[in-house]
Design a protein around this nucleic acid. Structure first.
Lengths: 202, 202
DNA sequence: CGTCTATTTGAATGTACTCAAAAGCGGTGG
DNA sequence: CCACCGCTTTTGAGTACATTCAAATAGACG
């Protein structure tokens, strides 16, 4: 098994086991991508711009948010290693995006523009299927998150987030987490205090 | 332009203009599907079952819901004409579903099982691309809905729903709409009263 | 006409929200 | 080493509104 220097093991793993690519095909696939570094706080997309590339995170993390009707930032999701980020809708339709996407840490990504993406799909059809399956998986995850948002109490939302991303507290400030959970930072602070007290009692 | 009897015009339209199929290809595509009638209140899927077919709605409407940790029904979404329904995740992974899908009216659907779907993809590759684009679109819509759920007041959620599906009040009972919006039926009732009063004053 | 389903109303409670302020924390420069 | 500044989190007080439980009303359908 070939070792791929500087590529996150989870990416190689999923190209191997989910996309079912051979090592040669993985090398070829990666050659269509460009490696880029994004400094903390830098944007890879702003509302109004058209997304010109698909981006996979090799290292670091990002937040996607939009500005709602009350001029408030609403965080839609975070992106960590081995996930893609970007506004696929803008990318596909060549329409201005409504989202901002910003690096939360110094990050490194693999990006690919539309032209190369089509060449890659032609060269490695299995990658086309793989890419479609990624969207599908995002969709499934989104459905479950929506169910959560609708039915769970703020406590449950917070705990389930911690459960899913145990490292999130180390990487993301609480007031961004609050926005992601659909609450105010003050409420999250009080909620955490409540949970703390419960722990002590039990 | 051929006329397709008994097929919802919106379905034909999207096969023609989005999938870019010729009339002959549309006929061929449809021949892979089975037409089925579903009586009001009947289930096309229950939690625990594995979804064995993909289903497109020709007439009528459905609701998808799950039973949450507090034994409460949570409505995830409604399906109307020309949309697909079903649990794609269960269908793809052959795993038991967590969702219930129930007809809200006497309905008619086009269903296709896995075997025929693969045959169809082989016969009409453009349908494979089309199908993937449908998932993508669902995903985009879901992202926007999530943003709504996170940032909007109950009033805004309700009004935006009416705006998106003007016919919904005629077809779906209010207490299901309440569940979809993540609130109690009583709250929706009071909310509607408030809106009514505002209208009168203005 | 009666029964089941759906919607509204009432009263009491809890909790998230707003606004305002304080405290904690990290880094920079004098 | 300390003072200062920006960023993040916590605390406080008051208000608004969704929730719960209970009951009344309204509609639909046989």
């Amino acid at each position: 098994m070939k070792i791929f220097q500087g590529i996150h093991p989870a990416i190689v793993e999923s190209l191997r086991n989910t996309a079912l690519l051979t090592d040669d095909e993985i090398s070829e696939t990666m050659s269509y991508f460009e490696r880029r570094c994004i400094k903390k706080k830098k944007f890879i997309l702003r509302a109004g711009e058209v997304s010109r590339e698909k981006i996979y995170i090799n290292k670091g993390c990002f937040r996607r948010y939009l500005i709602d009707d009350h001029d408030k930032e609403v965080i839609i999701n975070f992106g960590f290693e081995e996930w893609w980020v970007g506004d696929l809708e803008s990318f596909q339709n060549h329409r201005p995006s409504i989202y901002y996407i910003q690096a939360m840490e110094d990050s490194e990504v693999f990006s690919i523009n539309e032209e190369n993406l089509h060449l890659l799909f032609k060269a490695i059809p299995k990658f086309y299927d793989f890419d479609n399956r990624i969207i599908e998986k995002s969709h499934f995850a989104m459905l479950k998150r929506l169910a959560m948002m609708q039915s769970s109490s703020p406590e449950e939302k917070y705990l389930s987030l911690l459960n899913k991303y145990p490292q999130i507290l180390q990487r993301i400030p609480l007031y961004y987490i609050a926005s992601y959970l659909g609450m105010e930072p003050e409420s999250l602070s009080r909620l955490r205090k409540r949970l703390c007290n419960k722990e002590k009692k039990s």
